[in-house]
Design a binder for these strands. Structure first.
Lengths: 245, 245
DNA sequence: CGACTATTTGACGCCAGTCAACACCGGTGG
DNA sequence: CCACCGGTGTTGACTGGCGTCAAATAGTCG
């Protein structure tokens, strides 16, 4: 592995939480990386509609998929954490229907579509694991539809923090009750379909109720049980069981 | 093809709208069907969490994926039309995180996971097409997040009707401006994250504005242009281009 | 015809949006 | 060292879109 590709182990860890990944498959995956680049916070990583030749793996930092409406409203569809294959979807869609943006400074690995195609031809099990990774995105997005469509503002935000906590734990980026999350309240609002002002009010309530504190890009969970109940959080949709796929 | 498997051609048509499907691939796909069953309106087709051995293709009728909250609120995450591979996701997830229900009477084909695995081992291009089909679901669900999170009630409903119109045209189930849609206003509400009462008000407004009429399970579009503008509908996310995948 | 479900409409209430003012903070330059 | 500045966070007053409740009407199936 090129030394700068460190962080790829997080992507492997994410898969290993769901199935066995052989040494050889790990090698094939790591070898498929053609390049590693850094991108500053706030920059666009992939623009909707652009013709794609590479997919990306988020090695470090936070990114998101999002769409805008004509009046300037933005909706974040999924927040990505280290280890996520962000636009593996682009491999077969050929162009993305949404933008991918850097929420913090990020480091990403590029994987040529040609290498992915190769994997589908010669490494069917690894191909199924990559397919699985895209299905996990879909599952996360479905839970997001539920949140935005039916949960109260408070529950939406609580749910988001629960989900990120668990996903970051899988990537090895959280000890028990704390994690870094360098997002603004506006980002949270764009993810949860609310306004920044109302997010602020709900964050205050979460603090006052002693459920969690989000300040200075850091989340501190005070009462995980009550937080999960407030969010009606059930981690089943993250499919955290190791099974043959 | 078993005669009762008619309707599978709609699934093939859906793929052929996006890439070339060879005669042999079609044969392999059709041969993978082990059974065809009918299910009455309102019944559950797959329950969340159940252990799965088959995936399903919707041959006829309308179905949906949905989740419920504890207080009884329901959120439909995607409406499926004839030709959709509904829980191809279950092939690799092994158990679904959501329910699949029949919105009308439906006919579905069952495909054993074993046959799908076989396809990933021996027919990589066909496997990529099936992967693509699941990515299309993800894309539709992302647009759904945008709708529910940011569009007004009127735009949400207008968008839903635009999307279904186009998807039904691909399946050969709509002439120019009309299509069958045997859903109740409550179903529309559950899909769009609104209440049935408010859906009713918005449908009245769509009628009064002469954009479309939805009555008796039939949609009549009066002014497609203005409807699309009201919905801010852009079909790019349906990826209707025939390209090598 | 009667029971049931779906649709329609009106009155009213509330959750979240809007608008606005102010505090905070790190960076920048005089 | 401090004035300034843009981005972010905080709070209050007010508004409005959509939810809630309720009752009447229209279909539908036995």
């Amino acid at each position: 592995m090129a030394p700068e590709a460190q962080g790829l182990d997080r992507a492997i860890a994410k898969l290993r939480a769901r199935d066995i990944v052989s040494e050889e498959e790990e090698k094939v995956f790591v070898a498929s990386v053609s390049d590693v680049v850094e991108i500053a916070a706030g920059r666009t990583i992939v623009r909707a509609g652009a013709s794609l030749t590479h997919s990306t793996v988020l090695l470090d930092g936070f990114a998101c998929r999002y769409k805008d409406l004509a009046d300037g409203q933005r909706q974040i569809q999924e927040i990505h954490v280290a280890g996520d294959c962000m636009d593996l979807h682009g491999f077969l869609l050929k162009s993305l229907d949404h933008h991918v943006g850097a929420l913090s400074g990020v480091r990403i690995a590029l994987i040529p579509h040609e290498a992915l195609r190769e994997i589908t031809e010669n490494h069917p099990h690894l191909a199924r694991l990559l397919w699985f990774a895209t299905l996990l995105d879909a599952s996360i997005q479905r839970e997001h539809v539920l949140s935005v469509g039916r949960r109260s503002a408070l529950a939406r935000i609580a749910h988001l923090f629960c989900e990120l906590h668990l996903r970051l734990q899988v990537a090895g980026e959280s000890n028990g009750t704390t994690y870094r999350l360098p997002l603004t309240q506006t980002d949270i609002a764009d993810a949860s379909g609310l306004t920044a002002v109302h997010v602020n009010r709900m964050l205050k309530k979460l603090r006052d109720d002693d459920l969690l504190t989000f300040r200075g890009g850091e989340v501190v969970i005070h009462d995980r049980d009550r937080l999960e109940r407030a969010a009606e959080f059930d981690p089943a949709y993250l499919h955290l069981e190791r099974r043959p796929r």
